[in-house]
Design a protein around this nucleic acid. Structure first.
Lengths: 337, 337
DNA sequence: CTGAAAGCGCTTACAG
DNA sequence: CTGAAAGCGCTTACAG
C-alpha cells in the first residue's frame, strides 16, 4: 500500500503542530483554536484524504474499539444469526467484531482467547465449550470485560445472557403432556455443556411433577460429534419394544434434524403415534411433512443484550449481570397443499 | 484490565535491553545471544505470563495480520459458510478476520471499507453490492490488497474468485431441455449485480442455442428487497395463460425458497407439469416434497482460493488472478417415506 | 558481534 | 491559553 497521510503531513502543510491537528480533528478543546484555523485544518485533512491510523491511536489510548466473538461455529445458522445481531449493535457504537469458531474444543477456545487478547480487543463475547471454566476464571482475574452468551457456567459469577433452558424444556414437556403423551422420551448429547444439562433437568422435572415415568431408558444421550447411525439407533430404541414413546423432545437443532430425517422413513405417524418438540427454529424443517413444536429462542434480545452488557462492562465495569430469557413454544403445521 | 507485562518488564527483571528480549522472543538473530541467556529470557517471559501487544507490533511493522471480510449478510448461510472457510484458512497463516455486512448497500459498503482500512487490515475480501466500482477502483489506486468473491465487475481488472455463472445457468437450462421442457422460464432479481446478469445471459443463450423461445414474458425480474407477493405474482404469470412454462430456473436461493413455498400450494405437479432448477444448496429445501435440481457452488474452493489469493497479494503483490469455478448440477429427490 | 537509540502515528498531561 | 514534548510497546537499522 502506498504511504498514508499522517497528522504530521497535515501539520506541516498548515504550519501547526501535530497536536493541534489532533485536537481539531477529534473535536476536542475546540476553544484553543480559532474557527478559521480549525476550518483550514479540516479542509487540508479532507483534501489530502486523511484517514486516522486506528492502530496508532489504540496504542496510545489503550482502546481498540474491537470486540472478540468466539462461537462454536460461525457457519451454524444459530450463531451466524447471533453474530449479525452483535455486529449491528456493535456498529452503532463504532465497534468492529473479530470472530472465531472454537469447534466445541476447549483447547482451541483457549488459544483463540489469547489471540484476541494479544490483539487488544476491548472485550469478549463467548459461547464457550464445556470445560472452559479455568479460561473464564483467568479472564476474571485479568479483569478482561466479557459476556457469556447461550452457554454459561452455573458455579461462576460472570455476566451472561442465555435462555432459561430448564424452564423451556419444562414447558416443552408440559406441552407434550397436555397433548396426551404418556411416555415421553428425550434425545440429547452426552455432554457437560450446562445448557444441555438444564434442558435435561427441565425434562425430568416436568415428568416427575406430572407423575409420568422418567426412566433411564427414556433418555438417550449421543456423542456430540454427531453421527447419524448413533442417532438412528437411539431413536429406534425409543420407538421399539413393548412400550414405545409417544412423545419426544430433541435437545438440540442438529439432533432434531437427524432424528426427524430418520423418523420420516419409519412407519410412524406424527402426531398420531408420536409427538415432537425441538429446540430452536431451523429452516431445514420448513417443509417437514408433519406437525411439530419447537422452542424459539429470543435471538435478537440475546445478541443485543450481550453486546450492550459487554459495552457497559468495558466502559463502567458494573456489577455482574446474569440474564435468563424465556423461550417461546411455537407450534408448526406442515405447509398446506 | 490490569496493566499488562511488557518487554520492558522482562528486560528489567533479566537485566538486558528490551531489544534483546524482542530478538529472543521472536527467534530472530539467535546467534547474538548465548543459549543460556535466551533460555533465561524465555523463562522469565513465561513466568510473568508475557503476551505480546500486537497493536504495538503492528504500529511498528505496519502489519496487523488481520483481514477484513465484507459480505452482504453474515446471517445468510451461503456467506456464513464462506466466512467459516475463510476463517480456517486465515487462521492457518496466523490471520484473524473482522467481518461486516453491507446489506447490498453501496454506501454502507464504502463506509465499512473505510472503517476496516482505518484499522489497518492487511487486505480485504469483498462480496460487493452493485454500484461499487468506484470503491473498488479506489482500492486499486491505494494499492490495497483485495480479492472479490462471489461477485465481481467485468470491466475492472481485479482479483476475483467466483462461479462461472454463465456456464452454470447454461448447464441448468440444458438439464431442463434434456428432461423434455419446451417452455422454460426464469425468475431473477431486477439488479445490476453482475453474477445475476451472467445467469440471465446463460439462460438466454441456452434457450437460443436449442431454438427454444426466449421471450420477455418468460423472464421475470423482481425487486431484490424480496417480497413474497411479488414473487407469487411473477410465478403465477409464468404458470397461467395459454402457454404455461414447464421448466423454471430460480436465479437465487431466496427466490427458490419463496417460489417453491408458493408452488407447493398450487395444483401443479412437479415434475410432471413443471421442472425446477435452483441456484445454491439450501437446507430449507431438505424436506421439499418434490424433486428438483440445483447448481452447487464449490464453496470450499471459493473461500480457500480467495483467502490464499489475498495472502499472496499481501505478501508478493503478484499479477491479477481471476478465477471462475464450475458449478455442479445436483439432482435432488424427495426424502423416502 | 551487540547495545542503545530511533521511530511507527497517534494523544494528552504539562510546562511555559 | 497554547505549544512542544513525552510516551504508548514494540522492532530493527545502525553506530560502536
Amino acid at each position: 500500500m502506498e504511504r498514508k497521510v499522517s497528522l504530521k503531513d497535515i501539520a506541516q502543510k498548515v504550519g501547526v503542530s501535530t497536536a493541534l491537528v489532533s485536537y481539531v480533528l477529534n473535536n476536542k478543546r475546540e476553544n484553543r483554536v480559532s474557527k478559521e484555523l480549525a476550518q483550514r485544518i479540516r479542509e487540508v485533512a479532507a483534501g489530502m484524504n486523511y484517514r486516522i491510523n486506528q492502530v496508532a491511536r489504540s496504542l496510545k489510548t489503550n482502546k481498540t474499539f474491537t470486540i472478540g466473538l468466539i462461537v462454536s461455529d460461525i457457519a451454524n445458522p444459530f450463531f451466524s444469526a447471533l453474530a449479525r445481531i452483535i455486529e449491528d449493535e456493535a456498529e452503532q457504537h463504532q465497534y468492529t467484531v473479530i470472530f472465531s469458531s472454537s469447534d466445541e474444543n476447549a483447547a482451541k477456545n483457549g488459544k483463540l482467547i489469547d489471540t484476541l487478547l494479544d490483539r487488544q480487543v476491548d472485550g469478549l463475547i463467548l459461547s464457550p465449550p464445556a470445560f472452559c471454566e479455568d479460561q473464564v476464571i483467568r479472564l476474571q482475574q485479568q479483569q478482561v470485560p466479557f459476556v457469556l452468551v447461550d452457554r454459561y457456567f452455573p458455579d461462576l459469577k460472570t455476566n451472561y445472557v442465555a435462555l432459561d433452558n430448564y424452564g423451556a424444556a419444562f414447558k416443552a414437556v408440559e406441552h407434550l403432556i397436555e397433548s396426551g403423551c404418556k411416555r415421553i422420551g428425550m434425545l440429547t448429547y452426552d455432554t457437560e455443556l450446562f445448557h444441555l444439562q438444564e434442558r435435561k433437568r427441565g425434562y425430568v422435572a416436568a415428568l416427575k411433577q406430572h407423575k409420568l415415568p422418567a426412566t433411564k431408558s427414556l433418555l438417550k444421550e449421543v456423542n456430540i460429534r454427531v453421527e447419524q447411525p448413533a442417532i438412528e439407533k437411539a431413536i429406534h430404541q425409543l420407538l421399539s419394544g413393548p412400550e414405545p414413546v409417544d412423545g419426544l423432545l430433541f435437545a438440540a437443532n442438529n439432533l432434531a434434524l437427524a432424528g426427524l430425517r430418520y423418523i420420516r422413513t419409519l412407519p410412524v405417524h406424527i402426531p398420531r403415534d408420536l409427538r415432537i418438540v425441538n429446540f430452536d427454529e431451523t429452516e431445514a424443517l420448513d417443509f417437514y411433512p408433519a406437525p411439530f413444536a419447537y422452542i424459539q429462542q429470543p435471538l435478537g434480545e440475546l445478541g443485543r443484550l450481550a453486546t450492550r452488557l459487554l459495552l457497559e462492562s468495558i466502559n463502567q465495569r458494573p456489577a455482574t449481570t446474569q440474564i435468563n430469557l424465556d423461550g417461546q413454544l411455537v407450534l408448526k403445521s406442515p405447509m398446506p397443499f
